[in-house]
Design a protein around this nucleic acid. Structure first.
Length: 216
DNA sequence: ACCCAGGGTCATA
DNA sequence: TATGACCATGGG
């Protein structure tokens, strides 16, 4: 079993996922903040609220009062904290010259800069790098950690950065790493949504050969 | 009535 | 560096 074989199994089973669900890089970045520890169905409702109020825009968000923004974000949970994080992020985003400027930065520096924004942690930053900026970084979320540790590919308690290095180097020989990383994270989330609804009680939910139909 | 979700920050030891 | 509290809605 390897990271690559696991990917092949998932891809064979589910096919291309066409991620991230969002129509623009900015929408993807907003979604990345809003989905922190939150079900995507709730995030969608918040994004619809922003769209209906013509507020899916960095300048509008910065100009919007905290109470108003929190009201729109309400369905996504943690709405007070997310209102702060979103305004904070948008402020920084505009200061740096928005997407046009940021997209010219080298990946390493862009990542460091994203991480320096309050409210943007490692996974949120990597979501943005991979799905909004098309950079080949491997995103690690709770599902990824759970799946790989059940498969015995990782120990499970590694730091985010250690895991990322280990997984990315495990796939170093792959051409098309951007496409691979894009699909891989999406496939893991798809698999989790489809078969892991009862986790963490479902101990056998994995890609083991014994687990033929991807069942728990 | 619980459990959990595509995390991150901050205070403490 | 490593835990723990906290944030909060909506679906199962």
């Amino acid at each position: 079993m390897s990271f690559k074989k696991t990917f092949n199994t998932l891809f064979r089973h589910y096919g291309p996922q066409d991620w991230w669900p969002g129509d623009s890089p900015f929408e993807i970045m907003v979604g990345a903040v809003l989905t922190q520890n939150t079900a995507w169905t709730n995030v969608e409702k918040a994004i619809v609220n922003l769209l209906e109020n013509e507020a899916l825009d960095a300048e509008v968000i910065v100009a919007t009062k905290m109470e108003q923004l929190a009201l729109w974000l309400k369905p996504s949970g943690y709405f007070n904290i997310k209102a702060k994080r979103l305004k904070n992020f948008c402020q920084w985003y505009l200061e740096q010259g928005a997407y046009e400027q940021l997209s010219t930065w080298p990946t390493r520096e862009l990542r460091q800069a994203l991480l320096s924004v309050n409210g943007v942690g490692p996974e949120t930053a990597d979501d943005m790098l991979l799905y909004a900026f098309d950079r080949p970084v491997f995103v690690i979320d709770a599902y990824t950690r759970r799946l790989f540790s059940r498969l015995g590919l990782i120990e499970g308690s590694e730091t985010y950065e250690a895991l990322r290095q280990s997984i990315e180097s495990g796939l170093r020989r792959e051409s098309q790493r951007l496409v691979l990383f894009n699909e891989y994270h999406a496939l893991i989330v798809r698999h989790a949504k489809e078969y892991c609804k009862t986790t963490p009680r479902c101990e056998a939910c994995c890609l083991n050969k014994k687990c033929k139909a991807f069942r728990c």
